[in-house]
């Protein structure tokens, strides 16, 4: 009896071995396929870097470091410098963050502490929809609706009021065009709000309830709990979210292109038209004639990529560290 069973088993061994081998072969093929796809992500990144550097070489050789600090932008005489664009990119993003960070944190506090529970999800989704609206929609809205309204109702008033105040008149002076650095910054701040509030809210939710309860138990008000307990605990997450938003703001193209005015000068007034790296590329790339002009635009792309890489990489590192902490706590 036992012999028969053994014989039967023996007969099926080669078949099974074949099946296992086949499975193994399929396994390694599949694994290889997924590995290739993963490497493709790295290849894309490397490709972006390499192609930008190669494209920018002629401009780099021609202008050297002066490209970074020259304000000249003259396609006719082929004198190019990125300073005005870099300035515009940094200033618009910075102004956007000044508005978006406190408001984004405020929204996160609202969503985690104040909002009635049934409304939390819908309001949270509505705020996140601000990020889903394509940037070109912000652009067309800014150009046709917001800028004219702002010019007529707010800007004229501010310019008039501050006309004789020393210092402030420089920063808020000039003819009220409606479009310009300030309008671009405000629209950017609305666009990046959801990135800050979403990350901040998620981090707030990782704060152990015991900490909050202990603070409430000591008699703290809601605000004191948020400011003294929750925010310090969630600090690196909030900073990470803000950096993520900053990365977005720096590279944002269409919304800014519509409303910034595309002027290659640096002016003191934040109401004056300016330009950013991405707006310059979007406006001029297809019309650029001559290798040096194209190459200069590509070098600006390289600068933009470099700046956003640093900002986004630090955002990643902060958020990663946080994830690990949350992972080990749970």
């Amino acid at each position: 009896m036992a012999d028969i069973a053994l014989a039967e088993q023996m007969s099926s061994v080669p078949e099974r071995a074949a099946a296992v081998r086949k499975g193994g072969a399929r396994d390694s093929r599949f694994r290889f396929l997924t590995l290739c796809a993963a490497l493709l992500v790295l290849a894309i990144f490397g490709g972006v870097m390499a192609s930008l550097i190669i494209g920018a070489l002629p401009a780099m050789q021609h202008f050297g470091w002066s490209f970074l600090y020259s304000e000249a932008w003259n396609p006719v005489t082929e004198k190019f410098g990125a300073l005005a664009s870099i300035y515009g990119t940094l200033v618009t993003s910075l102004l956007a963050m000044i508005v978006a960070v406190p408001v984004g944190i405020g929204i996160a506090i609202f969503l985690t502490e104040i909002c009635p529970r049934p409304l939390r999800r819908p309001i949270g989704i509505a705020i996140e929809l601000l990020a889903a609206v394509p940037s070109i929609i912000y652009g067309i809205w800014g150009l046709f609706i917001f800028a004219p309204w702002f010019q007529e109702n707010v800007q004229t008033w501010i310019v008039d009021t501050l006309a004789n105040v020393p210092y402030l008149q420089d920063f808020f002076g000039g003819p009220p065009y409606g479009i310009g650095i300030f309008t671009a910054s405000l629209i950017l701040s609305i666009m990046v709000l959801p990135f800050i509030s979403a990350v901040t809210r998620d981090v707030f939710e990782t704060v152990p309830p015991v900490l909050k309860e202990a603070a409430y138990g000591l008699g703290c008000t809601t605000w004191e709990v948020m400011w003294r307990v929750v925010l310090p605990f969630a600090r690196s997450g909030v900073v990470g979210g803000a950096m993520l938003a900053l990365g977005r703001a720096l590279g944002e193209t269409m919304a800014v292109t519509f409303v910034i005015g595309n002027a290659h000068h640096i002016q003191k007034s934040i109401f004056a038209p300016g330009t950013t790296i991405s707006a310059t590329i979007a406006n001029e790339f297809t019309e650029a004639v001559g290798d040096l002009y194209l190459s200069s635009l590509i070098e600006m792309g390289l600068i933009l990529f470099f700046i956003t890489f640093i900002v986004l990489a630090s955002a990643q590192l902060m958020l990663r560290a946080l994830e690990r902490r949350a992972g080990s706590a749970s």
Partner: peptide
């Protein structure tokens, strides 16, 4: 990083 990288750079690439 690619997820948040400026899309205009993708166009240049």
């Amino acid at each position: 990083i690619l997820l948040s990288a400026p899309s205009i750079v993708t166009g240049l690439f």
